[in-house]
C-alpha cells in the first residue's frame, strides 16, 4: 500500500529540524522510527505536506552519562538499544524490561525511545482506514464531532499506549525539548496533556530530543507488568510500572504509573503515603494501594478487549508488582 505524496526533509542538525517544524507546523509531521506513523499515513490519519525525517541527525542517538551521574538517552536511540544496553539494564532494569516487551524484535530495532514517548494515542474507532472511519461518521479525534467511546462527551478517550512512558515516569525521568527558543527540560509527566486528541503538550516547532534518568533512580527495584493478548507484536492493553526502594531508615520510596488505560500515562498520586500505611499493618494490607490504582485507571472501550477486564487486569498487575518489589 502506497503512502500519499509529501515533501520529505532530512535535516542533518536538530536546529534545522526545529526550523522546518516551526515553519511548516500543522502541515508537517515528524518521522522518527516510523513504526506508528507510517501505518497511520497508510490509513490516512495524517496527510502532511511535509515530512521531517529525524533519522539523519547524528546527535540524537546514543546513551551517555552526564557529569552529575545522570543518564542521557538521545530521542532517536532505538528501543532495541535501550532494552539491550548492559549497563543501562543493570542500573534501570525496569526500563529494560518495559522497552524489551515493546511490539516485536524487528519493530524494536526500528522504533525509537523518543518516538515511543511521543506515540499517538490509540483507539478502536481511530486507528482505522478512511473507509472505516467514514462508516461511523468519523470521531472526535479525526474529522468528526462525536466520541464513539463516550457518546455525548466532548473529550477524546483514545488510550496512550507506550510502554516506556510509565517506566520512565516512575524512574523520575525528564525530557529535553528543543524548540525555536532553545532547549528546556521538563519532568516527563508534564509532556502529556491528558487529552486523547492532542496528547502532547508541545509548542510549535518543539521536538523531544533527549531523556534524562536521574542517578538517584538507579538501582531501584522495579516491576513492569504488561497485558496484551499475544506475547509479541501487540500494543499493551493495560500495563503498569512500579519502582521502589526501601531506604536504610525503613522508609519506602515508591512510584507507580499506568499506561494503555488513559489518554496519558498516569503517575499515581499519593502512592508513597498509602504504601507506608499499608506496610505498617501486619501483615501488610495492600488493598488500599490497589484501590488507589483503581481510582487512577480510566479504561474505556477503546479496544475489542473489554474495558472492565482491562481494569481488573491492572489491579492484578498492581498487586503482583508490589509483591515482586516487596519480596
Amino acid at each position: 500500500m502506497s503512502l500519499p505524496s509529501f515533501q520529505l526533509h532530512r535535516p542533518r542538525e536538530l536546529a534545522e529540524a526545529v526550523a522546518l517544524w516551526t515553519e511548516h507546523g500543522a502541515a508537517a509531521k515528524l518521522l522518527a522510527g516510523g513504526t506508528d506513523l507510517i501505518p497511520s499515513l497508510k490509513q490516512g490519519l495524517f496527510a502532511p505536506d511535509h515530512l521531517i525525517d529525524l533519522g539523519a541527525i547524528a546527535g540524537l542517538t546514543g546513551i551517555s552519562r552526564a557529569a552529575n551521574g545522570d543518564w542521557l538517552i538521545g530521542a532517536m536511540t532505538r528501543i532495541h538499544e535501550v532494552a539491550e544496553d548492559p549497563i543501562l539494564g543493570r542500573e534501570f532494569p525496569l526500563l529494560a524490561a518495559a522497552a524489551g516487551q515493546i511490539a516485536s524484535p524487528v519493530l524494536r530495532r526500528m522504533g525509537t525511545l523518543g518516538g515511543n514517548l511521543c506515540l499517538d494515542t490509540r483507539c478502536l474507532w481511530y486507528n482505522q482506514s478512511y473507509l472505516w472511519r467514514q462508516s461511523c461518521g468519523f470521531c472526535l479525534k479525526k474529522n468528526g464531532a462525536v466520541c464513539h467511546v463516550a457518546p455525548g462527551g466532548r473529550r477524546c478517550w483514545a488510550a496512550f499506549s507506550a510502554d516506556t512512558a510509565p517506566a520512565l515516569l516512575v524512574l523520575d525521568a525528564s525530557v529535553e525539548i528543543a524548540g525555536p527558543a532553545g532547549a528546556r527540560w521538563l519532568p516527563l509527566a508534564e509532556l502529556y496533556s491528558g487529552a486523547g486528541d492532542h496528547p502532547l503538550r508541545l509548542g510549535r516547532g518543539e521536538i523531544l530530543s533527549r531523556v534524562r534518568l536521574p542517578a538517584a533512580a538507579a538501582g531501584m527495584r522495579g516491576s513492569y507488568q504488561k497485558f496484551r493478548i499475544r506475547n509479541s507484536i501487540d500494543y499493551p492493553l493495560a500495563a503498569l510500572a512500579l519502582a521502589l526502594r526501601r531506604e536504610a531508615n525503613g522508609a519506602v520510596t515508591a512510584r507507580l504509573a499506568l499506561t494503555a488505560l488513559n489518554p496519558a500515562p498516569v503517575l499515581v498520586a499519593g502512592l508513597e503515603r498509602c504504601l507506608a500505611a499499608a506496610l505498617a499493618a501486619d501483615p501488610p494490607d495492600l488493598a488500599a494501594v490497589v484501590q488507589l490504582v483503581n481510582r487512577a485507571a480510566k479504561p474505556l472501550s477503546t479496544s475489542t478487549v473489554p474495558a472492565d477486564y482491562r481494569r481488573e487486569m491492572v489491579l492484578i498487575q498492581a498487586r503482583r508488582a508490589l509483591e515482586a518489589c516487596l519480596a
Binding site: M1, L8, R10, L31, G34, T35, D53, G55, R109, M110
Partner: peptide, 13 residues
Amino acid sequence: GQPALACTLLAAG
C-alpha cells in the same frame, strides 16, 4: 545487517 520492515521504511531514509 539489521532486520527491518521494508513496508515501514521510506526508501529515501
